[in-house]
Design a protein around this nucleic acid. Structure first.
Lengths: 194, 194, 194, 194
DNA sequence: CTCTAATCGAGACGGTACGTCGCGTCTTACG
DNA sequence: CGTAAGACGCGACGTACCGTCTCGATTAGAG
């Protein structure tokens, strides 16, 4: 176990080379995801596209999925951070619009992730972070366990976005925001009313 | 000249041996799914567990996923058939209860599928069949495209069931049915009212 | 062991169907040999070409090679029978010519066999039959064991014929006969002079 | 994209591991050939015997036959190199003796190859190399095309050696050399006299 | 001319080996 | 003398062909 591959200190990843390498890897994976689904991409391809040695990949990520997790975690973190800064239980409508606008602004990135086989990873990461956030503000509803609410919102969000970004003919942001508000957010957020 | 693997006539699967073999395969996969997730199961294991030759597997399914699809399609078909026979737009509550009871009655099977890595397949199959059913009864809402409604209900259903069946301490059927009704079904089904 | 396949009575193969089937198999193999080497021909192809069922093949031959052996044995038997009827130690020249003429008369057949991967089988069969014939007329030379003589003549014959029939531009029968006499037959047959 | 199996640079096989691996493969095949014929040996066995991974085999040889060719080519090359250094058209007798002694000195190796199913490969390789050598010294006889001479000598050589090394009771080298000279070499080499 | 038994056709099946692919580890040659 | 290049072991995949095994359907040829 715990092979002998030389791994950079993950914690103190301050080394400029390390930063550069990891950034290359992320970019490479995202680039490849635009041409075919995640499972069909090999580590060798990622390394080649990133312009780094095959072995070097493993110095930064134990597995292919780990790199994707990295990307997903980062994007989800930024998304949720943004949402938290604008979120207001009283104003679900604005929050919905904010989310949709945020995603629309980075359409290419999210489109790539959601249609390239990373949807599952994003959803799981979404749930994970949401749970952590929810731990602080314990607002348990009567009929709806907080965990279920999170799962439903997270999966609903991912599904809706995936559908949206997968459409041939673009759909207006506010229409999607309306769907999001009425079919996904409200039913769960309003649960406390009961 | 007659290359490739000899595949039984999938359409005319009247041969007793073929029926037996396929049944064995389904059972074998379900059995194995109880011990570990789908991706960690090899075709060789399935064949061995089913008591059939490795090659024979491919005479019935081009890939491991195809067998799972088969099972998922069958279960989803039966589930939806059952639901359609009891469904009533006016009475969402009873439908919710019916669904939850149906799943609870086959707890082992659904638990295996939902927690064994087949959730995605089930969800996709759910969506596929739902779309086909929906084609007939075109009731498009104003703000909610039918397709989105289907996707949200399907994914919500799967997520909720997966959470339910994954709980350590059993949760009452009617509690889950309530969640299902209020957080998943109603928001979408009521859309036509608007 | 000794499986349960129903096999026609090999000894009393008087049944019209059996005779027909076997003849079809021989013809089919020879036909296929004209398009590609023996090892690349499958039993299924032979059966299909012969217009008989796959299983039926095994009712007549335990293996693919067995069918080829059959053909080779038959041709070698006829060739040697013919040679024996004209052979004369004193007149090696005429014998050589006789052999070459015999083969030239059935150019297609021998060409197929010799260039289709059956050369080895023919050679072995040639040796086998020759040994049996030689058992009767024991004429052992001093320096050359009869067995070696047979092997050298047989392999030399096959090699020369294979070369001959594989040439693009046809070569006159008498030229080949001369080579056969001087390079293959004489050196061995004359051995008794010593 | 970089598909296929990764093959070591055949030309620049300077890597110590590559050299080691290939040597292991040769030794493994020769070892196995002593117990059963070539066709009955599987690549998996060769790899296992050589102590290398199954896949690694294909990184060095596209097919099982290719490994045998390698060995055959090497041995034939060395044999012919040795013969050329001692060969003299005027002294066929000594050349014959030289050949027989050379083979006798490596009795085990040649015995393995000739009786293990590699005779055909050796013969073909013998012919191939001989042709290349003969291209330089164009001495075409009147009645005997050079190519035929080569084929007959090569096949005769292989057959005689195979018979010799296959005998239960050992046969003196000079006796074999005599046969070789009188029945195989002389008839062809003397052809130019005519 | 019939009837009985042998032969045949079809094809599902178990099995063995093949060659491919990708992963993750380990070694080595090279700068 | 450290590091990228890449050889290697591993294990699963899917293909190809083999030879066996049911079944019926057909067809000789003997009575």
């Amino acid at each position: 176990m715990e092979g002998k591959i030389y791994r950079p200190h993950f914690s103190t990843a301050s080394d400029a080379r390390v930063v550069r390498t990891r950034e290359s890897l992320r970019r490479a994976l995202l680039e490849l995801l635009q041409s075919r689904p995640f499972e069909q991409i090999t580590i060798r391809e990622i390394a080649a596209t990133a312009g780094i040695g095959y072995t070097t990949f493993f110095r930064h990520h134990p597995t292919k999925a780990s790199l994707l997790d990295d990307i997903a975690a980062e994007e989800i973190r930024m998304l949720i951070e943004y949402l938290l800064s604008t979120f207001d239980t009283r104003n679900v409508k604005d929050s919905s619009l904010a989310l949709c606008n945020y995603v629309a602004d980075q359409r290419t990135l999210w489109s790539t992730l959601l249609t390239g086989g990373a949807a599952g990873t994003l959803r799981d990461e979404f749930i994970r972070v949401s749970k952590k956030v929810a731990e602080e503000s314990q607002h348990t509803a009567g009929w709806l366990p907080a965990e279920v609410g999170i799962i439903l919102v997270a999966s609903g969000t991912i599904e809706l976005l995936a559908w949206w970004l997968g459409q041939e003919h673009p759909i207006a942001v506010d229409k999607v925001a309306t769907i999001y508000e009425r079919a996904i957010l409200s039913p769960v957020v309003m649960s406390s009313d009961d």
